Simulated assay, not measured.
Amino acid sequence: MPETVLVTGGSGYVAGWCIVELLQRGCHVRTTVRSRDKEEAVTAAVATQVDTADRLGFAVADLTADDGWDAAVKGVDHVLHVASPLGGNVDGNADAMIAPARDGALRVLRAACGAGVRRVVMTSAANTASPSSYATEGTTDETLWTDPDDPTLIPYRRSKTLAERAAWDFMAAHDGPTELTTVLPGAVFGPILAPGTTGSVDIVRRMLTGTMRGVPRIGLEIVDVRDLADIHLRAMTSPRAAGERFLATGEFTWMLDMARALREELGEAGRRVSTRQIPDLAVRFAARFLDPSLRDITPALGRRNRHSTAKAHRILEWQPRPARETVVDCGRSLVAHGAV
Rank of each mutant, 00 (worst) to 15 (best):
residue 2 P to E: 09
residue 3 E to C: 03
residue 4 T to S: 05
residue 4 T to C: 12
residue 5 V to D: 12
residue 7 V to K: 14
residue 11 S to L: 09
residue 15 A to D: 12
residue 25 R to G: 01
residue 26 G to Q: 04
residue 30 R to L: 08
residue 32 T to R: 03
residue 32 T to D: 05
residue 37 D to Q: 08
residue 37 D to I: 13
residue 37 D to R: 11
residue 38 K to V: 06
residue 39 E to G: 02
residue 45 A to D: 01
residue 48 T to N: 07
residue 49 Q to D: 14
residue 52 T to N: 07
residue 52 T to Y: 02
residue 52 T to D: 09
residue 53 A to S: 12
residue 54 D to C: 08
residue 63 L to T: 02
residue 63 L to S: 03
residue 63 L to Q: 06
residue 64 T to W: 02
residue 69 W to N: 04
residue 69 W to T: 00
residue 71 A to H: 00
residue 72 A to K: 12
residue 73 V to F: 12
residue 75 G to A: 06
residue 81 H to C: 06
residue 83 A to E: 00
residue 83 A to C: 09
residue 85 P to W: 04
residue 87 G to T: 04
residue 89 N to M: 01
residue 94 A to K: 11
residue 94 A to S: 05
residue 94 A to E: 05
residue 98 I to E: 01
residue 99 A to G: 00
residue 101 A to Q: 00
residue 101 A to I: 00
residue 102 R to M: 01
residue 103 D to P: 00
residue 103 D to K: 01
residue 103 D to G: 00
residue 105 A to E: 06
residue 106 L to C: 07
residue 109 L to C: 14
residue 109 L to E: 08
residue 115 A to Q: 07
residue 116 G to Y: 15
residue 117 V to S: 13
residue 118 R to N: 14
residue 119 R to G: 01
residue 123 T to R: 08
residue 125 A to V: 08
residue 129 A to I: 15
residue 131 P to K: 06
residue 132 S to D: 07
residue 132 S to T: 12
residue 135 A to I: 03
residue 138 G to F: 09
residue 141 D to W: 06
residue 141 D to E: 02
residue 143 T to P: 06
residue 144 L to P: 15
residue 150 D to F: 04
residue 152 T to V: 04
residue 152 T to F: 03
residue 152 T to R: 11
residue 155 P to H: 01
residue 158 R to Q: 15
residue 158 R to D: 05
residue 160 K to M: 02
residue 160 K to L: 01
residue 162 L to W: 04
residue 165 R to C: 05
residue 169 D to C: 01
residue 174 H to V: 13
residue 175 D to G: 14
residue 176 G to V: 10
residue 180 L to F: 14
residue 181 T to W: 07
residue 183 V to D: 06
residue 184 L to R: 00
residue 189 F to G: 13
residue 190 G to N: 15
residue 194 A to M: 04
residue 196 G to R: 10
residue 196 G to N: 13
residue 197 T to C: 14
residue 197 T to W: 12
residue 198 T to Q: 15
residue 199 G to Q: 08
residue 200 S to D: 07
residue 201 V to C: 12
residue 203 I to L: 09
residue 206 R to I: 05
residue 209 T to Y: 01
residue 212 M to T: 05
residue 213 R to Y: 05
residue 218 I to N: 00
residue 218 I to S: 02
residue 222 I to L: 07
residue 223 V to W: 01
residue 228 L to D: 02
residue 230 D to F: 02
residue 237 T to A: 10
residue 238 S to D: 14
residue 238 S to G: 10
residue 238 S to C: 14
residue 242 A to F: 03
residue 246 F to K: 10
residue 256 L to D: 11
residue 257 D to P: 15
residue 261 A to F: 10
residue 262 L to G: 12
residue 266 L to H: 08
residue 268 E to L: 14
residue 268 E to Q: 15
residue 270 G to L: 11
residue 271 R to Q: 15
residue 274 S to N: 07
residue 276 R to E: 12
residue 278 I to D: 07
residue 280 D to C: 03
residue 282 A to Q: 13
residue 282 A to D: 06
residue 285 F to E: 01
residue 291 D to N: 15
residue 291 D to L: 13
residue 300 A to F: 07
residue 300 A to H: 01
residue 300 A to D: 02
residue 305 N to V: 00
residue 314 R to E: 15
residue 315 I to M: 07
residue 316 L to E: 03
residue 318 W to Y: 04
residue 319 Q to D: 13
residue 321 R to P: 01
residue 324 R to G: 06
residue 326 T to N: 11
residue 327 V to M: 09
residue 329 D to M: 11
residue 332 R to I: 05
residue 333 S to C: 14
residue 337 H to L: 13
